[in-house]
Design a protein around this nucleic acid. Structure first.
Lengths: 342, 342
DNA sequence: GCAAAGAACGAAAACGTTTAAGGTACTGTG
DNA sequence: CACAGTACCTTAAACGTTTTCGTTCTTTGC
């Protein structure tokens, strides 16, 4: 591999001059700069990141913690989309991204970051109850979290409050009054936000939601949601619309409803959350709240890079990215039987 | 950060000794080894990867080229699953993985690899018509490709020949004789394999497949497949079963068939490919060929690491991973009208 | 008792950069 | 002409490792 020394030899200058010329420092003459750059290009030079990192303590490498509790890894559609946005944005400003590994139990996440000299870390998806994750969050490494709040670092998250509010309001406007909400795991920050927003919105709409309409299932697993759906349908006063933790779970509910001989929309309306592939492809189209995963990822990268490059002028903040309500035929107008009776 | 020098000072030995002790070299006494290791642990030492990489030319970092032509990035379900398998396996043997960036147009892929000192590269998903990709493939960096053959490097791919053969045979056994195949882009190696296998199988089953039954759509985009489905249904002698490029495309076909007032399975049978989330969730369940993405990723990592660590004894080979036929209700028994007439 | 071999460790160079400090030659100023 | 100022370049150290080649001391074999 061609190094600064080789270029220096060819150009008849010192390696220091070559380094400074390539880094466009001001104390190098314009003509030498040109000469050095030409030679470098001609010789196929490119810097050695390890040497540079060693000397400068800057790796231009960002770590990504991507370790979901469910073990679905990168096949987690929403987080994969977030990561992709993050990657695109980070690369566009000259940073590479690496995974903060999990399997290698020699080092904790924090140690791994130091070992690899990551300039910063994005916690895209992690089990926040894990003490190692907490150790990382409490460290002094520039960091950004997705969909999770921590006093120490900037967070970028989906606007769950507004999303749920819009969804419930939309369903209400379609005439539904008996709305059930099957939510995801309660330990999740996202669940808390959505559930609170659900209560707040139904409250302000003057709805009385019975306890039995609020149930806990699991994110991204169809079966629990399908099971709870069956139970909800068996209630004497069953809901006319069911909101699911996410789109995949909604498909589970959909299947249960169809199996019960009922029609989606016509008999029971359903809504998901995420706006993932399934919701877009399926007929009847699923009413859902699309989360702007790509933008969330990009914003995260932008804030992280800012925190790295301008630590003095950057402060911890909370960034919220709005989603969009995507109406589909899975929620239909509900005509109250008693009302039409009169 | 605590370095070898610090440990050396504490232990009263030289840095060379510390280095050798921690690396468990044989020319260090057992007692000093213990002393050094204890001190290192107590002081919270861990090595500096940059310094180590600089000195040894080994980074324990693998590059991943993940750049699909369609720009879907990590949201590409199949490749994301492959990547996840790769990541898990690589991490379990002490390698980290980084993305081979795309946006940063200062360097070609190859240069990027040298710059980052990647020990090896996995080409998970790339536009193989790209000259930069070819430059990389032709380089001397240890490499493994997924679903693509190149004389230079080991490839791990899905057994498309067997997969398609099983699928067609299954459909044939269900009584179908008029089988259409809407395939993905022809420039793709995978398409060629599947198409050839389709022809070979139908040939050996004695089926005459009219030209009009073989159509090109796009992978992972529902619309083109839906459009072609409509055209196929309009044929005077239309197919009784349609095979799609993948599961997502099959949903496009499904929608077109339902819109035409026909029943999936009952009137027109359909089959997908991939075995993705949708195929598993949907009712009626989609008949498809599940590709063992996780295993493909893991095998790729295993072979790549072997090529890196034992270059002498490793030769380029082609690894093929079998998939599984997943029967679903989307392909139903077809009872030939004429046959039952007699 | 002595040479040879082996065990345990250290000194120093090297990997490819960056950068502080310093040096030289030129230019303009009073 | 002396001086400061500037423009340009070099020297050398440093970043944290690994590794080659010694060196010293102990053990072994005869």
């Amino acid at each position: 591999m061609v190094s600064l020394k080789d270029i220096a030899k060819v150009c008849g200058v010192s390696t220091a001059t070559v380094s400074k010329a390539l880094n466009n420092q001001k104390d190098i003459g314009e003509d030498t700069k040109v000469k050095v750059r030409d030679a470098a290009a001609k010789m196929g030079y490119f810097p050695n990141s390890a040497a540079r990192a060693l000397k400068t303590n800057r790796s231009y490498n960002l770590g990504v913690l991507f370790q979901d509790a469910a073990g679905r890894g990168l096949t987690h559609e929403y987080f994969a989309a977030v990561l992709n946005g993050f990657k695109v944005q980070a690369e566009s400003v000259g940073y590479d991204i690496s995974f903060l590994s999990s399997g290698n139990r020699q080092m904790s996440y924090y140690e791994h970051c130091r070992y690899r000299n990551f300039d910063g870390v994005a916690v895209v998806c992690a089990d926040f109850r894990d003490s190692e994750v907490q150790e990382l969050l409490n460290s002094d490494i520039p960091m950004v979290t997705i969909d999770y709040l921590h006093q120490n670092c900037t967070s970028v998250s989906s606007d769950n409050v507004k999303g749920m509010q819009e969804l419930v309001t939309y369903i209400y406007q379609k005439g539904h009054r008996k709305i059930a909400y099957i939510h995801g795991e309660l330990f999740s920050y996202v669940t808390k936000e959505r559930l609170t927003s659900f209560y707040r919105t139904t409250d302000s709409l003057g709805l009385e939601i019975p306890e039995s309409f609020i149930r806990e299932a699991k994110y991204l697993v169809a079966k629990p949601s399908a099971q709870i759906t069956r139970e909800l349908l068996r209630l004497k006063d069953s809901p006319t619309c069911i909101i699911y933790p996410d789109d995949s779970s909604a498909i589970g509910g959909r299947n249960a409803i169809v199996e019960a001989g009922l029609r989606i929309g016509g008999d029971v309306s359903i809504a998901g959350y995420d706006g993932n592939l399934i919701s877009r492809l399926l007929h009847p189209k699923l009413t859902t709240v699309s989360q702007n995963a790509d933008k969330i990822g990009k914003e995260a990268a932008r804030h992280l890079v800012k925190a790295i490059e301008k630590p003095k002028t950057t402060l911890v903040q909370r960034v919220v990215i709005e989603g969009n309500l995507i109406p589909g035929q899975s929620v239909e107008d509900f005509l109250d039987v008693e009302a039409s009776d009169t």
